[in-house]
Design a protein around this nucleic acid. Structure first.
Length: 576
RNA sequence: UGUCUCGUGGUGUAAUGGUAGCACAGCUGGUUUUGGUCCAGCUAGUCAGGGUUCGAAUCCUCGCGAGACAACCA
């Protein structure tokens, strides 16, 4: 790629995606006086998901990179679907990801009067008309992508009549659906969006910000392009499906500029489309996510199994890991389905460096160290993070009775099994090497207790501990550990593309094992000493040898709940 | 039987007429008091045909395939 950078570009952050290249070209041509202003324009009708995160990182990333800025604009032109709950969640999610919008958040509803005035301008120019037909009639006249549409019988109303009707629409003289305002363009256009699209419809509903001031609301197409233009957005970065809308935005803007020439001074927004993010084993449309919430299949928008930003946050994902992910997936115009393993890779990479290690046993079996004195406790030193010495050490109690993971014992184990079996020596991490002498089973053949002896010369740090043994296990003291609840999450769907089956509802592919809550888990007593505070206030840990876990928001001091963010990579488990 | 967009390893993404590279996934091996991390290596790709050119993933052409567009949604 070009090594050149523009004056406004940050050369420390090389970028190669096509949007950067296009913006670089614009800047080299001296457009917009070298300014770059982007925007992120969500409709407040649902929670943000990982696909939005890609868009957020792209738009805010561009704003930062070119030292311009990014507006957060709520696209709130449909009062029946929008709510301040969503406005608040969106601001929280964008902030949590680490981005700052320029000035205060803005709203398309801020421009309702301006948009109305522009609509009047179009009527005056005989470029818009009021149609009295029903939605069905209008749809029938629209034609199909391969056949032309037909003119509305109301298409040739006089300017005066249109003006009068539109004003009365605004005053509330009509019921929902009685009239609409349409642009007069071309019913035979190969682009369906140019076939006399709706500009305004009547909706008698309370708007989350303008209350009952309006009973007519602009359509997205009549609002979005002008909002960008009005705010001085230089580059409007959006997803591919809006490409066919672009000629319409340009048509609207050109009509407005013709009617109001002094606006020609302002820069025209350039829209650039990219392919939206798709992730396998999940669904990404707000409609389907809402369906999961409403049907109580998940506990809410922030259920840790949801691909929402709030769900990922509750799952334990860090903002940095999501930004890393957005960076790694890249930006292009071809359809894509990203493997979730990339997302998991990103959070492991981030948490490996940051998460303090603690000991927890999820599926315990009791081990008795028969030659260790009853009632005695020996405090062992353990590093909080081998990747980061500055995180220090803490002590953990070693006693005669401990729990180990049931999976870490196998009777008659093959030699490839690097764990405990009768007659074998293994290391208890940060403690002693122990040898399994015998086991006790109940009537069902289930192991109820394992008896071991320890070698007093093999305490961690001693020379005797350098002995090569079969494996290293994690453990907790029976008497000193705390009982916890753990949520083990798996993918929500069993199918790679649950929404991709024409004749089968996506909910048919739900994974019945997506949540496994277990209460038989034990954690070392002083796990808080490991220093788990992250910038966002969420407590995250690595449970040694198991995975990354975070403290759930519903935890109480005496009954902690941990959510598994992601297991550690495991080259044994998948062979087993 | 329309218009537009897009086809590079399994998945993403670079290379913009000059050695097809990187990441994830997978597989080896090394280190390791986490079967993690780290390190080294391996596997695997330009949709097909034709053309232009000394030279094509890149330009042209034709075919094939995928996606988008027919809400008083955004």
């Amino acid at each position: 790629m070009s090594k050149e950078t523009t004056d406004t570009a940050n050369s420390e952050l090389p970028k190669t995606n096509f949007i950067h290249q296009e913006i670089d070209k614009d800047l080299q041509q001296g457009k917009n006086n070298g300014k770059v202003l982007t925007r992120f324009p969500p409709e407040p009708n649902g929670y943000l998901h990982i696909g939005h995160a890609k868009s957020i990182c792209l738009n805010f990333g561009l704003g930062e990179y070119y030292k311009g800025g990014t507006n957060l604009r709520f696209d709130d032109t449909n009062p029946t679907k929008e709510d301040t709950e969503y406005v608040n969640s969106i601001m929280e999610d964008v902030s949590w990801l680490g981005f700052t919008w320029t000035n205060e958040p803005v709203y398309t509803s801020d421009y309702f009067q301006q948009l109305y005035d522009w609509a009047v301008l179009l009527i005056l120019a005989d470029k818009a008309y009021v149609d009295d037909q029903t939605a069905e009639q209008i749809a029938a006249q629209k034609g199909t992508p391969t056949t032309a549409g037909q003119h509305s019988p109301f298409r040739n109303r006089t300017v005066a009549e249109n003006l009068d009707l539109f004003e009365r629409m605004r005053k509330g003289e009509f019921k929902n659906g009685e009239h609409v305002l349409r642009a007069k363009i071309d019913m035979a256009s190969p682009n369906m969006h140019m076939r006399d699209p709706l500009m305004y419809r009547i909706i008698h509903a309370h708007h989350h910000r303008t209350g009952n001031d309006w009973c007519i609301y602009p359509m997205y197409d009549f609002a979005h392009g002008q909002s960008d233009f009005y705010e001085g957005i230089t580059h409007s970065i959006c997803t591919l499906e809006f490409e066919v809308h672009r000629p319409l935005y340009e048509w609207f803007l050109n009509q407005i500029l013709e009617a109001d020439p002094k606006l020609k001074e302002l820069p025209k927004t350039r829209q650039i489309e990219f392919a939206r993010l798709n992730l396998n084993y999940t669904v990404m449309s707000k409609r389907r996510l809402l369906e999961l919430v409403n049907s109580k299949i998940v506990t809410g928008w922030n259920d840790p199994r949801m691909p929402t930003i709030s769900g990922l946050r509750r799952r334990g994902y860090t903002p940095e890991s999501i930004r890393m992910f957005a960076d790694k997936v890249g930006v292009a115009r071809r359809e894509n389905i990203i493997d979730v393993s990339l997302l998991e890779h990103c959070v492991r990479e981030d948490l490996n460096k940051k998460a303090p290690r603690v000991y927890a046993v999820l599926n315990p079996v009791k081990v008795v160290i028969t030659n260790f004195a009853e009632g005695e406790v020996e405090w062992m030193e353990a590093e909080n993070n081998p990747e980061d010495d500055t995180m220090g050490t803490r002590t953990i109690p070693f006693t005669r009775e401990i729990f180990i993971e049931r999976d870490d014992f196998m009777e008659g184990a093959p030699s490839k099994f690097f764990r405990m079996d009768v007659g074998r020596e293994v290391r208890l991490k940060n403690a002693y090497i122990v040898k399994c002498e015998s086991i006790t089973k109940d009537a069902n053949g289930e192991i109820t207790e394992i008896q071991c002896t320890y070698d007093a010369n093999t305490k961690s740090g001693m020379e005797g501990s350098n002995r090569k043994v079969k494996g290293t296990l994690h453990w907790v003291s029976v008497n000193y550990s705390k009982q916890i609840t753990v949520n083990l999450y798996d993918r929500l769907f069993k199918d790679e593309d649950p929404a991709g089956h024409k004749d089968v509802d996506f909910k048919e592919f739900l994974n019945p094992d997506s949540l496994n809550t277990i209460n038989t888990c034990w954690i070392e007593p002083n796990f808080m000493e490991a220093g788990a505070k992250f910038n966002d206030g969420i407590l995250r840990f690595q449970f040694q040898r198991l995975g990354y876990f975070c403290l759930d928001m519903d935890s109480k001091p005496d009954s902690p709940i941990f959510n598994r963010t992601v297991p550690l990579k495991d080259s044994w488990g998948k062979n087993a």
